[in-house]
């Protein structure tokens, strides 16, 4: 279970998150939607532990563990996974070596034995097949020369191999055609079950047709202004944020939301 209580954060003194309260029970998938600049990516980066943000209040717990005091790698081995909106290119780092190093770091932390190259390849090839990815993906340098869709699929491949307890998908649907979208959604749905939960950040309803969320939250101006079932996402798609009184971004939205 992920519990976010009163999370407030700023960048260079400018408040971005202004008190987020959000609970994702184990086994559930929640979606966060919201206009540009509402703080969606900031939230995902803060959960993953990226530098450059000042957390000014609140707490985040994953199955009771205080995440905010942990280094990014400690959060990862505790079971948190961020699928990046903009996956980073690593020239000179082979994808197979990267994935195996990450998997073995995770396994070590769980007290499991490390996988050798042969065991890893077997596991990786199976994961590639499930995601309709070519085997040569493993030989290439991480994300280097990948198309937008390949980068996103590579994120889902990493998730499939690392098997996190909690995944954050930050606009994983952007840049995907409909076939790739289905594959990516399939990758997430495969992991769904009692030991997995996720936060899906997206602009669009169409991803949520394939990954049907248990709850939908609307984030604007650094606060969660609405929460509801999957029907909330459809309402947003049809009438836009304006119809919900969520037209503008920033201070104004917060004011509307508070009223």
């Amino acid at each position: 279970m992920l519990e976010i209580r009163g999370l407030a954060a700023s960048i260079d003194g400018k408040p971005i998150l202004k008190g987020i309260d959000l609970v994702v029970p184990t086994g559930e998938v929640h979606a966060i939607m919201g206009p540009n600049g509402s703080g969606k990516s900031t939230l995902s980066y803060i959960l993953a532990g990226r530098e450059g943000y000042d957390v000014t209040g609140g707490e985040v717990r994953l199955d009771g563990v205080d995440l905010l005091t942990l280094a990014p790698e400690e959060r990862a081995v505790a079971g948190l996974f961020l699928a990046f909106q903009y996956p980073v290119e690593l020239p000179g780092v082979g994808n197979a070596n990267f994935l195996r190093t990450a998997l073995n770091a995770t396994r070590r932390a769980r007290g499991e034995s490390e996988l050798d190259a042969v065991q890893f390849l077997k596991l990786a090839r199976a994961a590639l097949r499930d995601l309709a990815m070519a085997d040569d993906m493993l030989k290439r340098n991480v994300n280097v020369g990948f198309s937008g869709g390949e980068k996103k699929r590579n994120e889902v491949l990493q998730m499939a191999i690392l098997k996190p307890k909690f995944a954050i998908l930050d606009e994983t649907d952007s840049g995907l055609d409909i076939d790739a979208l289905k594959i990516v959604a399939g990758g997430v749905n495969t992991l769904r079950g009692p030991g997995f939960s996720a936060l899906v950040i997206t602009h669009y309803q169409r991803l949520l047709d394939h990954i049907v969320p248990d709850r939908v939250h609307v984030l604007a101006g650094g606060r969660i202004l609405r929460s509801g079932g999957p029907e909330l996402a459809r309402a947003l798609e049809e009438s836009g944020y304006a119809a919900l009184g969520l037209e503008a971004v920033g201070e104004d939205v917060a004011a509307i939301g508070a009223s």
């Binding site: 990226r50 280094a71 790698e73 990046f84 980073v88 990267f98 190093t101 770091a105 990493q158 690392l162």
Partner: peptide
């Protein structure tokens, strides 16, 4: 790049070495 590696569970020293 360093954050990307660490976000996958690779300790900082190992990530720098990579």
């Amino acid at each position: 790049q360093l954050f990307y590696l660490r976000a996958r569970g690779i300790p900082e020293a190992a990530a720098r070495a990579m």
